[in-house]
Amino acid sequence: MEANTAKIAEQKSPSSLNILLRELVRDKLALVSLIFLILITAFVFGISLFLNQAEIVTVDLFAINEPPSDQFILGTDYGGRDVFGQLIIGTRNSLAIGFLVTVISGVFGIAFGVVSGYFGGHIDNFMMRIIDFFMVLPFLMIIIVFVTMTPSYDIFTFAVIMAAFNWMGIARLIRSKALQEKELDYAQASKTLGSSNFSIIFKQVLPNITSLIIVTMTLNLAQNIGIESGLSFLGFGFPEDTPSLGTLLAYATNPQTLEFRWWIWVPAAVLILLLMLSVRNVGEALRRAADARQRRG
């Protein structure tokens, strides 16, 4: 019996994490994207340690709309504020919000989905109706109203507000997977052996759907950065003294800026595009890895 187990362990197929990594390395585009993402994140968070947000958003009457120069690498905006500094801090803020929203909504969504799927029956029915309810809410409108009503908020509370309307997708996905998993032999066996529901969910079902979770959350990250930038662009994100990629883009709604002062908005636009594409490339590669039929490696 002991020998048997050892043998099985040796022959064990590669862990899902390994598969994901292997797929990433095989897909050159995804690899480059991943490296780019890591570099950008490290760069932005690193540099912003040395930047002073208060100084960057300080209005300077004598440096309004300066084109790029030695002093201002990317010029200044209509308040005489350094665009480069705003870009760095804006990217950091956008990434931080995107990441926070993904994690918060992910954790909640997964817990909700897995519980709903695992227990099934009336509990499932009830929990799914809750999800249905949240899904019919026009969440962008609600976030906008909420943001307008709240006198002041910081990055964390803003992320919580966004996450509150953003967890249903992942919850549904996880629930359907959990429904399948709990019918499989290993879960049934574990149950027969008297394991508690808690331990089955966290020690057995969850590890088996890790790859799905990673894939979904990666793809969600891109989506959340997009939503945050969109809200800031419309003026329902942060005020101008907390820059985000969206606020920089919003400067382009002024036709003069759009036409004559590219340095204010083009870098932000390009950066958003690159970030989105990179996250998506990585996410797609992971998704393929999670599905044996599409795997390349």
């Binding site: 958003v57 300080t58 209005v59 009457l61 905006d77 209509y78 308040g79 005489g80 504020r81 005020p239 101008e240 003294d241 002024n254």
Partner: peptide
């Protein structure tokens, strides 16, 4: 108008 925000910030500063 576009100068509203920088102008306000200027006064505050």
């Amino acid at each position: 108008g576009d100068t509203a925000e920088p102008l306000a910030n200027y006064y505050i500063q």
